[in-house]
Design a protein around this nucleic acid. Structure first.
Lengths: 358, 358
DNA sequence: GACGTAGGTCCTATGGAGGCC
DNA sequence: TGGCCTCCATAGGACCTACGT
């Protein structure tokens, strides 16, 4: 068992050179040219023995571990935000890096522990991701390790990757209104005068701002704004249910997220109203359930994968203007909005339900 | 910038001892007792300087990295299976370990690369997870690094953690039948005589076996078995829709997974049938959508978190009987099955829709 | 009894040694 | 005498540990 790993020394011995030469050759060092013949011998020996450099040892000596730490508060749980990890993972892989994952369960001190666990292992950089784009505190214990906030912001860190909620909202509402759905518009999720609370994150603020700017730009005034918190299926259902009971007939519903839309569908269905025919619905996030609905939901997708990838790039790049980095939210145009041909041509193709395996 | 990290040597100098002493004291080595006074001096110095051991260096010298590698084929994508990671993460943390994540996109050779990336970094063990419990090949390049298969099996590896599909099926079907839903039973997803195919994984085989054994044990014969692949919302809808069109009236539907159930709900609803009143529905997995449905879905939950945790325990333990390790599937009893009081007492509490943040 | 020295983990970085023209 | 080419010894990096004083 446990046959020891092949080391540089083994290769050196077999090739009849020093370990230095092996190192230089295996790393393709320019400048200090060894004889082509020696290089061939070394490579042959390495191949024969199946030599692979020990990256731990290399990290110790170069101070570069080629590892990125990914801290999240429950991101791995959230099916939406697992896209963040996925995007980061793929981009990291493209650069020969690998990801350390550490999760903080929101407990105090838990972040601190996670950061220690990562810096103790000499990660080259840290991505600090959140489910909600709230402002987070980053302990000073990171030291000089570069940090990028992902779907979050922090007073302690310059770089942050966020979805471009404002533009996304402008676009999706623009789509709705340009398609002619300008009467009896309802905003579901949060009203303009709802007092600030913990849910009113920077992302929500911008999303809402985009919605209203788009409405105002076209002179459209909603007939109702429905507060509800949290944005759950149940609350979406209840809000639209109550609205219909009060004899208000929406022709277009702007949902602040897909779960609210899901609830709205149900309430509408119970009242005999058909989405796409009687009522247009748009939403945000492109949750998995968006394509489970009938008709499928038109929504501004949260670009989580791209955001994750972007965070890795920022970390590895080093040379970039610090600040917020906004990633566009692609529109998923599907059956919940009837779009005239003319407008339809300008926008991306509908998605289909993915082939889930289980 | 980049103020160098505090090393053992720094602590030693400040405390006026050798690095050896620092090492021994910081690691609480018994046996070789240093003076209590020296220990105090060293700890004070370490505190003052904010010393933390460099785990990379430690790993190099002890051959223990306290890192576990987690390889998955798209597990991070799948919102169901992200529970695997979450469970593993928390258990690893409890043991002072951290998780390397590597994803293979199903490409050939990709697994090989992932394994290399991990073993090059001296991980203490590897968890190889899959979305479908299929049989996977594990390249010999793992060498002597211990491997545990998670939600998968392999001819090359003894240990595997799987959901106890058979028991889960026995239980959930038992629940359905014991509640009195024994007439006009329909099995939705896969029939007994459907030929083997790529979807017929070991998990599906056992799930199906459990269903039928439970049915037979009570002398119940379904009035229909509906094949469909993949198990999507659309296919579930279509199958039940067609069934109703053919004038077959199900009183109980056994869905092979939650997405099928989702589709079934829709088809039933369109036909004016109410789940929980006219038709009982049970299912598998406890997907997020299970609680979005109305009434909420009664389902045998895939115990992903517990499975992930179990995999970590097996890796760290070392002393255990090798083989398959089955994790029970808890029943989530909700509104889709009317359960008589008497039976209801014996089973867990209904869940509620989680407070999603976005 | 209390502690330090030296050698081990594996790789990289640097200055310079030896041979040849 | 110098220059050029090929190569290596040595000294890190930060830690652990067997042995010695």
């Amino acid at each position: 068992m446990a046959q020891k790993r092949v080391t540089m020394a083994d290769v050196a011995k077999l090739a009849g050179v020093s370990t230095t030469s092996v190192s230089l050759i295996m790393n393709n060092r320019q400048g200090t040219r060894l004889s082509a013949e020696a290089a061939i011998r070394v490579r042959a020996a390495a191949d024969e023995l199946g030599y692979r450099p020990n990256l731990t040892a290399r990290a110790l000596s170069t101070q570069k571990s080629h590892v990125i730490g990914f801290i999240s508060e429950q991101v791995t749980t959230d099916r939406l935000a697992s896209g963040l990890i996925r995007g980061a993972l793929q981009e990291a892989k493209r650069h020969g890096h690998v990801l350390f994952i550490a999760e903080t369960e929101g407990e105090e001190g838990s972040v601190h522990d996670a950061i220690d666990a990562l810096t103790d292992r000499q990660v080259d950089g840290i991505i600090y991701a959140a489910t909600r784009p709230q402002s987070l505190h980053v302990p000073a214990s990171v030291g000089s390790t570069p940090v990028v906030m992902l779907n979050a912001i922090s007073d302690d860190v310059a770089d942050a990757v966020l979805a471009d909620e404002y533009e996304g909202a402008l676009n999706i509402i623009g789509l709705l209104l340009d398609a002619g759905h300008i009467e009896n518009v309802v905003v579901l999720g949060r009203s303009l005068d709802q007092p600030d609370d913990e849910w009113f994150t920077i992302a929500v603020q911008r999303r809402l701002a985009g919605i209203w700017d788009a409405l105002r730009a076209r002179g459209v005034t909603p007939i109702a704004q429905l507060d509800c918190q949290p944005w759950s299926v149940m609350n979406g259902y209840q809000a639209i249910h109550d609205l219909l009971e009060a004899n208000v007939q929406p022709r277009a519903i702007i949902c602040l997220n897909d779960r609210l839309a899901f609830g709205a569908y149900r309430a509408l269905g119970e009242a005999g109203l058909r989405v796409g025919r009687d009522v247009a619905v748009v939403s945000f996030d492109d949750d998995d359930i968006a394509v489970y609905l009938d008709p499928m939901l038109t929504t501004a997708a949260a670009p989580f994968e791209e955001m994750g990838a972007q965070a890795v790039r920022l970390l590895l790049d080093g040379e970039h203007a610090p600040g917020e980095h906004l990633v566009p939210m692609p529109l998923r145009v599907r059956g919940s909005v009837k779009v005239p041909e003319k407008v339809g041509r300008l926008i991306p193709h509908p998605d289909v339900e993915p082939n889930w395996v289980r």
